[in-house]
Write a protein that binds this DNA or RNA. Structure first.
Lengths: 249, 249
DNA sequence: TGAATAGTGTCTATTAGACATTATCTC
DNA sequence: GAGATAATGTCTAATAGACACTATTCA
């Protein structure tokens, strides 16, 4: 039976780091939250070259004893100052970006993650810049001139937005962007924010209700009191149909 | 204006390879093909430790001048001997596996890819083992005891299968597993192979036809001649419904 | 002629979409 | 009461699912 040492020796004989040099591994985070019926993304201002002063997605290196998902959680706290024990957060892997020249300094491969923060639809969680970044702030996604972003972060952001918008068709992922208990109006606001389209309230209620569980509680604002729900099924079957993007006038 | 050298110097001051050591980057390939109404996956037998003699997904290291997708194409040819100029092939990124201990020898992060090979539904492309592997062969996916696979390749295979099965609900990705021109029966066989469920032929025709383009040609086998189609739309709206997995009797 | 397959037709139950109506609350 | 919102009801067109039926070919 091979010892770990002899395994490694055998392996290193066939693995030539000169032919296949190791790469620096990072995570980049597309952090979404909804306020005022607008989808916002968390951005940090770069404090160093390259792209000094440009906005970028928060992110950082993956440590030797963590996987990419753990690094995403850690960097989320470090780079944005968010206290994850005080916010509902859902993180899922998005895609990996590995173009050889995506970072001009060295080979950096980044595992992008989609991060969804729950909220009340009014207030955004407060961001505090980490050590690397000059500042951290929320930006409305649909007003963003994505050419401003550093590296290939415009591509990553677009992929994150498309993943979110797409999964909202056939899953209840939108519930990650509201509070644990939510009204159908709050959930519909998420759809409005992400899809940039108004959905008729009556039909939305009828269709979405099948995937939700009523708590029995109600909440009072202006108008009739609204029932509170929590996420029921993970799936919406058959899916919601995403209206075609309204050509901006 | 910063030169590339000073950028790199500044960067290296803030990047400590001891804290965040670089990782070896690989690709692993979930290569699917359909024959005899069964979904097959290409596996190679490991020729070295660890997992000597066990079956594994084909894969290999990402070179310094290629991204993961390019490495996937290259390794597909090198590890399985497939001549990509002679087969229809679709490759898409699946997910990245980065558990620190997923390879006992060293830190290896792998970008898994889903690879779909077109075929006539009868013959599988011939595989030839590359230099690293003892042999390469097709295995019926649904008969595979996935515990046999090396590393975390059972997880990767399961993810590939689920991605394929899921995307077949709402996209025409199944057309990647048949020839460019295909009959509705051939396409239905793909659904049968992947979903492990028979779909009624009449309703399948009616629904799928909306996403396909007829070529006008027909092909003759046993029974009435069948019309040939090519892929039309990328999307199937509303989606096909995947029957619940039939509890094996 | 019989077997096999392709493709269409038919019927029903479901439901999405449009929109009206009723209910409940605040100011 | 006016205004606003929630939730339900109504009507129609579309269609999925089940399944019968016809058409076309080979053996």
């Amino acid at each position: 039976m091979s010892s770990n040492e002899s395994q490694e020796a055998e392996f290193l004989a066939s693995y030539d780091p000169a032919e296949f040099p190791p790469v620096a591994l990072t995570v980049d985070l597309v952090v979404f939250a909804v306020a005022n019926r607008e989808l916002h993304v968390a951005l940090v201002e770069r404090g160093g070259q390259p792209f000094l002063g440009r906005m970028a997605l928060p992110g950082g290196f993956v440590g030797p004893d963590e996987d990419a998902l753990a690094a995403a959680h850690r960097e989320l706290e470090e780079e944005t100052g968010l206290d994850l024990s005080r916010h509902r957060v859902v993180v899922e892997q998005l895609a990996t970006y590995s173009a050889p020249d995506r970072d001009p300094r060295m080979r950096v491969v980044s595992v992008a993650h989609l991060v969804l923060l729950g909220g009340d639809g009014v207030n955004l969680p407060e961001l505090q810049a980490g050590s690397d970044a000059a500042k951290a702030q929320w930006q409305p996604v649909h007003e963003l001139e994505s050419r401003q972003l550093a590296f290939d972060h415009a591509d990553i952001l677009a992929a994150g937005l498309e993943r979110l918008a797409g999964k909202m068709e056939y899953t209840t992922i939108a519930t990650a962007l509201v509070q644990e208990e939510f009204t159908l109006s709050a959930l519909r606001d998420v759809y409005t924010a992400v899809w940039q389209a108004e959905l008729p309230a009556g039909n939305f209620t009828r269709k979405m209700r099948a995937s939700l569980t009523p708590t029995g509680r109600k909440v009072q604002a202006v108008g009739a009191p609204a029932s509170l729900f929590i996420k029921g099924s993970e799936w919406i079957t058959p899916p919601m149909v995403r209206p075609v993007v309204t050509a901006a006038g």
